[in-house]
Design a protein around this nucleic acid. Structure first.
Lengths: 335, 335
DNA sequence: TTGTAGGCGTTATCAT
DNA sequence: ATGATAACGCCTACAA
């Protein structure tokens, strides 16, 4: 038979409520009582029933991670950070895959129909999905975002991506590059715009004229990086360096360059963004910008948990980036 | 105010229990009743309270994915498959990161203290972690495994990895390789042994004598693949082909080969195992063995859910593999 | 500081 | 086939 709080109370010779107080770290309990209770808990191996706690306490002690981000490495990093924060607070993290089509709102509704988390964690591009956001706000569910396009009134965490790219561009210019191509990310992500802005401002700072021909649309996927690279390298006057808006696309650029017999970085410098493991696993290894991805997951979760506890709490945090120079960049060769 | 089952019952002019019966697809309800109830449910937008359901029903409608597998790509694939199966059954999938040290048992205990899943999904190397397994069995919690070393009495899903490697070896031999190196995986995984067995039997089938010098220990990580490659390529008579026990390690081999100025596959053929995205993203792309990873996650979950419903149900399933020939293998060059 | 009573919203039991 | 009532195990409010 399962041990209940009542049994613990009896064993310790106190009331149920006192046991409850001890277990939940509430004030107004004498040290002696606390010890007596804890001893009984240990002896009986008492484990509170989560469902009962949730039912009586009107909350589930769980948050949902809603995702449809296709980058596995990125996802797993963020998820690990979130999980760490949740477990540290004895919160449960459960998964909610959100589909891409119009039924995605139904996915969110199903989430609450079946499970009812106390809050939701959003990752791009869901952070800017109007239907999803509206639905959550309508239901009055707290949510936190990672790198939302529109941060106004939101809580979570973001990075100054534009500045990060600015620094990268300065490096490329310093190396001597003047013809620098850019493969954009998927437009639904804020990152697409921020990184593009960094690219443009970087050119501007260096006094290099912006050439629209050197910018192609990608989608954050390896394949789109390949396609973008083909386009850029087919130009009559191809770039000597390409900045792809993430590592996966940069890996695509390197692949295409090698297929074409180009030497990276000898003939073409390549850089990415994110510092995912692939940046170290490919050859040459990739110059990129490090996001503290896991830490961002952790911090966003802490903000969400804070807001769950009190509707006033929770802010939009900023984290730092770092430029990581590796093998894929060098001065352009004279041709 | 929240709508309760009582309100639905009143609106439909039936008892609470009838509503419950309809909602849970129980028998013994007239079609007319069913329709009346469903209409009331829709009108009132009734959503059952998960905690109450769990408390009264003595189950949580959730399973935990316990993991400490370091391969992000693999994990994410498995996880996606599991999530699909869970959602299809209106089950919740929550995450449980398990640490590596001795406190890992405490992690599992904490899992049940705080959340109490109805079952647990295990991924290597946890599938063969005696402490974990013992703890779960002691608690009487159903669990399913992906690719456990010891499948006796277990439910879940596995693949015939030895046969898969045998086919791969036959291909290498057919290409003309006779000096084939192998980098083993971490010994805690069943995969380490199965793949090594395939390697040995492959040699045997081809009448090639086994040379222990050609086998080095790895750990399934990119870095261990690099180290293993260095070792093998430093041999006085280095191999003309290397079979690494997974894709990450094979990527390490390719990286090292290129650093040493070796041409892959011209000077060295390389193959991996798993068919993770990296096998397509590196250059040259990798010959490897495809596991239906996501499908395995899905199937293992279905078996677990079956067992949760009835203690008799649930089996150990087998799934098929496929050999994927890409750019990293060819006939050895005459030197 | 500690204890008592009642309710959280569902499912299970046992009648009818 | 349907319904009344009692669990389920904990927490909140209020009383002492």
């Amino acid at each position: 038979m399962r041990i209940r709080i009542e049994d613990v109370a009896a064993a310790a010779g106190v009331s149920m409520k006192t046991v409850s107080r001890v277990l939940n770290n509430e004030p107004n309990v004498r040290e002696e009582m606390r010890e007596r209770v804890m001893q009984a808990v240990t002896e009986l191996q008492y484990k509170p029933n989560p469902s009962a706690r949730s039912l009586a306490g009107q909350r589930s002690y769980s948050v949902a991670l809603a995702y449809n981000n296709p980058s596995r490495n990125y996802m797993m990093e963020v998820q690990n950070g979130m999980l760490e924060a949740c477990h540290a607070s004895n919160y449960n993290l459960f998964l909610a895959a959100v589909s891409l089509g119009r039924e995605r709102v139904a996915d969110i509704q199903g989430l609450f129909r079946n499970f009812g988390p106390d809050g939701v964690l959003l990752i791009p591009p869901l952070t800017d999905d109007k239907l999803i956001i509206d639905e959550l706000e309508k239901m009055g569910v707290p949510f936190a975002c990672i790198a939302p396009k529109n941060a106004a009134g939101r809580i979570g965490v973001a990075m100054d991506e534009t500045t990060a790219v600015l620094e990268l561009m300065a490096k490329l210019v310093e190396l001597g590059h003047t013809r620098i191509g850019h493969i954009k990310g998927a437009a639904a992500h804020g990152a697409c715009r921020w990184r593009f802005d960094g690219y443009r401002k970087g050119l501007q700072n260096a006094g290099i004229e912006f050439d629209p021909e050197l910018v192609v649309q990608g989608a954050f996927s390896f394949e789109s990086g390949c396609a973008g690279a083909q386009e850029l390298l087919d130009l009559r006057k191809p770039p000597t360096a390409i900045f792809a808006a993430n590592d996966d696309m940069a890996a695509g650029v390197i692949r295409v360059a090698r297929e074409r017999g180009l030497n990276v970085p000898g003939d073409l410098s390549v850089c990415g963004f994110d510092d995912t493991p692939i940046s170290r696993h490919i050859y040459p290894s990739l110059t990129t910008i490090r996001q503290p991805t896991s830490e961002m997951g952790r911090l966003a979760t802490l903000e969400l948990l804070a807001r769950i506890k009190s509707p006033e709490a929770g802010r939009m945090l900023r984290v730092d980036h770092a430029l990581v120079m590796r093998e894929s960049t060098q001065a352009p060769s004279r041709r």
